[in-house]
Amino acid sequence: MTIVTNRKHLWFFGLLTLIICSNVLLYRLDLMQPLPNEVALGTLVDFMIIIPLLTYFFIIRKRYSLKSLLFVVLAGYAAAALIVPQGYFSSYSFVKYLLIAGEGAFLLVELFIVFKLLSKLPAIFLFYKKKENEIPAFSYRIEQALAHHMKTNRFLEIISSEISMFYYSLFSWRKKPVIDGQVFTFHKKTSAVAFYIMLIHALVLESIGFHFFLHSWNPIVAMVVLLLNGYGLLFFLAEIQAIRLVPFILTDHHLYLQVGMMKRLKVPLEEIKSVHYYQGPEKLTREETKQLFDAVLPDIMKEKPSIEIEFFTNQEAKMMYGFTKKVNKVHLRPDEPHEFLNFLQRKITE
């Protein structure tokens, strides 16, 4: 399966490179000149139809939402606009307006969802407060509060992820770690927090220096990069706080495993087949990681997991922005592995 996937990616990037290079050379080589204006239509077809179709069949199909194709088409038009000399586009300016109309329609749908969300905010807030003592961590509570009052979709899941990120990065600094149920920290014996602080330090220095360099070339690009770096800074702050404030939580009915902002897993105790010390290799193959929930924190030198948990049936792990993954086992490294193992074994036996 891994060989097949790698072959698909190689075919995709090979065909993508062929299409892009052939179009670039078409306009840059002197021996191809002069070109008729209609050649721009061929480039638009390549970048707005052929490349999105290749992306669908090789990348998106059965994995991501079809909405992702819209962004591929928009990126294709932007790439075509960079490659094609300006004079050739004069006859096809209507394409830009068609894209704007399509993007506008998509934006209206998203704004309608935002309007519904705003109209139900009081009810969502009440539900959130009601579940404060039942659901142990903010990310789980806000997701359930939104899902209870609105139909779940990818846009709503993105909003849920964004709310969680801004909460942890800006509004959680006076909060104390979760203590409901039996909790087990997993960051105190690692350098994960120091690792993210190092990334923040590098990001801030890069933002200052790179911004002035880009600003002298293109102020708009400089501002976009600065905003992206600011978003990255908030994400790293949220990651630190989520790691600190949300340990592994074991209640009477569920095991909650949240690893920073990026992923989390809620497992009913009756679905746990076994829990034991991990005796496997330090590095796993890609095939072995496909159905694995890796709850070991990233570190300067990533440690080998100490505990492995296996399930009777596949469980759905939640990733950031609504992505999911089916998993049948977990690797983790709590600060007190012996205590965690004994307590969980006792719980699933009961």
Score class of each variant (00 low, 15 high):
Ile100His: 09
Thr324Ile: 05
Lys189Trp: 03
Lys62Val: 00
Leu44Asn: 06
Asp180Val: 02
Leu53Val: 13
Val221Ser: 13
Trp11Pro: 04
Leu226Asn: 11
Ser90Arg: 13
Ile49Lys: 06
Ser22Phe: 03
Leu16Tyr: 10
Ser119Trp: 12
Lys130Cys: 00
Val73Ser: 03
Gly260Glu: 05
Phe13Ile: 11
Leu245Val: 09
Ala242Glu: 09
Phe340Arg: 01
Val204Glu: 05
Glu143Trp: 08
Gly76Cys: 08
Ile159His: 10
Met301Asn: 12
Ile3Trp: 12
Val246Cys: 13
Asp46Ser: 10
Leu226Ser: 14
Lys120Asp: 11
Lys120Ala: 13
Phe125Ser: 06
Ile208Cys: 07
Glu350Ile: 08
Leu26Trp: 12
Pro281Met: 00
Phe293Thr: 00
Tyr196Gln: 05
Glu103Lys: 06
Asp335Phe: 01
Leu245His: 02
Glu162Tyr: 04
Ala137Pro: 06
Ile135Pro: 13
Ile60Ala: 04
Val45Ser: 08
Phe171Cys: 05
Phe12Lys: 09
Ala222Cys: 03
Leu228Met: 14
Val39Cys: 10
Ile159Trp: 01
Leu245Cys: 03
Phe186His: 07
Pro122Arg: 02
His9Val: 03
Asp30Ala: 14
Glu288Ala: 13
Glu110Gly: 02
Ile60Met: 01
Ala202Pro: 08
Pro177Gly: 06
Arg346Gly: 11
Phe138Glu: 09
Arg346Leu: 03
Met319Glu: 15
Phe115Ser: 11
Glu287Ser: 15
Ile50Trp: 05
Ser169Phe: 01
Val221Thr: 15
Leu227Thr: 02
Leu82Cys: 10
Phe13Tyr: 14
Leu227Lys: 01
Glu132Ser: 11
Gln258Arg: 12
His253Tyr: 10
Gly260Gln: 07
Gln33Ser: 11
Ser169Met: 04
Glu38Ser: 15
Phe112Ser: 00
Tyr167Gly: 00
Tyr64Val: 02
Glu38His: 13
His215Thr: 00
Ile100Leu: 13
Thr251Gln: 04
Leu297Ala: 11
Ser65Gln: 09
Glu316Trp: 04
Phe94Gln: 14
Leu234Ser: 13
Tyr77Leu: 03
Phe312Thr: 04
Gly209Asn: 04
Val84Met: 11
Glu303Trp: 07
His338Glu: 08
Leu341Ala: 06
Leu74Tyr: 01
Arg286Trp: 06
Lys263Asn: 06
Arg7Leu: 14
His215Ser: 11
Arg28Ile: 07
Met261Tyr: 12
